[in-house]
């Protein structure tokens, strides 16, 4: 279990305990956090689960070629801390991760 904080663009904050083995995307979708679409269900195809990572207690997995190309065409602008949340597996070490959701996903 890891505590993940989801910040909306308007400042609203949702703090969730997400089980290890899930993903940052799935944590949001299963708990009704607005702002993540996840159209393809987490296969790294649609780029509708874009987040900005504000704080991570440990280094995150590298951005691979697929994620890189998808991040180049997200609906809200790509920033240095942009990630697709389906590509961020939740582990115990990820406790206290903070992400901000973009204004738009599609």
């Amino acid at each position: 279990m890891a505590t993940v904080t989801y910040r909306q663009p308007d400042g609203t904050v949702t703090v969730l305990d997400v089980p290890a083995g899930s993903t940052v995307m799935r944590g949001a979708l299963t708990n009704g956090v607005e702002g993540i679409e996840g159209e393809c269900g987490g296969d790294g195809i649609c780029a509708t689960c874009h987040v900005y990572v504000d704080h991570s207690p440990v280094p995150l997995p590298e951005i691979d070629e697929n994620e890189g190309e998808l991040l180049d065409c997200t609906s809200s602008p790509r920033k240095p801390n942009s990630r697709l949340s389906c590509q961020l597996p939740v582990t115990e070490e990820l406790d206290s991760l903070v992400v901000t959701l973009p204004a738009t996903q599609v």
């Binding site: 296969d43 190309e69 609906s75």
Partner: peptide, 18 residues
């Protein structure tokens, strides 16, 4: 499925940018 779908996806026709 995942391996082959990604091969197609990354060959450049399907992402929003392309």
């Amino acid at each position: 499925h995942t391996v082959h779908r990604r091969m197609a996806a990354l060959s450049g026709a399907f992402t929003k940018k392309r």
